[in-house]
């Protein structure tokens, strides 16, 4: 148990300088070929996807990408995907299934984008379909919450055989601000909400929602990124090996039961 408050963790999870999906992708894998587009509408830059090599093994990688400055954030829509982002992710995950590649997702989003076009193009349907399809993909899936995992926008790439969180990341039904505005009718009570909504890695481990917590150096992952990368890499290799040993039907059944048994 760490002794920093839930609100402190929210701040750490949102730090601009905190490593983003691309930092993990570029440092964990020997190479990465980014693949674009949902074959339907466009290419959403708030979700990155492609093929990479992890310790000699081809894997499919999906990540929600926030920016590290204003310019990048505009380009990445602050890590808030549109439906075409989720559909690109699904296309690439199905491709992974076809070629028996394990899937690794990096979750980091304030939520799915609540925009006009997003609604016109079926944001709800896109998220629902991803969740449903991920539940039965016949290949191992590991999901890592690296920063902010907020709402259905996070879960849309979050149905895995292993779901893990970095120590200072958060995973919640909504942002603390949104939670406060709905339940306390006052978005300025976000700090209070952060505590009440129990969204830290420790909380989620206790609830049985996540499988493991990956430790971070003091004040966040960026302060000893090499160590964090080393730990994640070790975790990925170990767990993918374990999951690949299971017969496919057992793997899928276990994944179903994992989510089936959540309260």
């Amino acid at each position: 148990m760490s002794n920093i408050s839930a609100w402190d963790k929210v701040q750490l999870a949102r730090q601009l300088e905190r490593p983003k999906a691309l930092d993990y992708i570029n440092n964990l894998f020997d190479d990465f070929i980014e693949l674009h587009g949902d074959r339907n509408f466009g290419d959403d830059k708030s979700i990155i996807g492609g093929i990479a090599t992890l310790d000699g093994m081809p894997v499919t990688v999906i990540g929600e990408q926030k920016g590290k400055n204003a310019k990048e954030n505009l380009e990445r829509n602050f890590g808030m995907p549109n439906p075409e982002g989720y559909r690109k992710a699904l296309r690439l995950m199905k491709q992974a299934e076809k070629f028996n590649r394990p899937i690794i997702t990096f979750i980091d989003t304030p939520g799915a984008y609540p925009g006009l076009g997003a609604e016109e193009r079926g944001q709800g349907e896109a998220i629902a379909r991803n969740i449903m399809e991920m539940s039965k993909l016949e290949t191992p899936i590991i999901c890592i919450v690296i920063g902010e995992g907020s709402s259905g926008g996070a879960l849309a790439i979050g149905v895995g055989d292993r779901v893990v969180m970095l120590e200072n990341s958060i995973y919640s039904i909504l942002s603390p601000e949104g939670f406060a505005s709905i339940l306390y009718k006052d978005s300025s009570k976000a700090k209070e909400a952060a505590e009440d909504m129990k969204a830290t890695a420790d909380d989620l481990k206790k609830f049985g929602i996540i499988d493991d917590i990956i430790k971070e150096p003091k004040n966040g992952a960026q302060n000893d990124f090499d160590k964090v990368i080393k730990d994640i890499k070790k975790y990925l290799i170990k767990n993918i090996k374990e999951l690949e040993k299971l017969p496919i039907d057992k793997l899928v059944k276990q994944r179903y039961e994992k989510f089936r048994n959540m309260a």
Partner: peptide, 18 residues
């Protein structure tokens, strides 16, 4: 989602869709 149940309510989306 039922906000008062936090992350547990989010997981109902996964449960029902699966």
């Amino acid at each position: 989602a039922r906000m008062q149940e936090g992350i547990i309510s989010l997981m109902q989306m996964a449960k029902t869709s699966s």
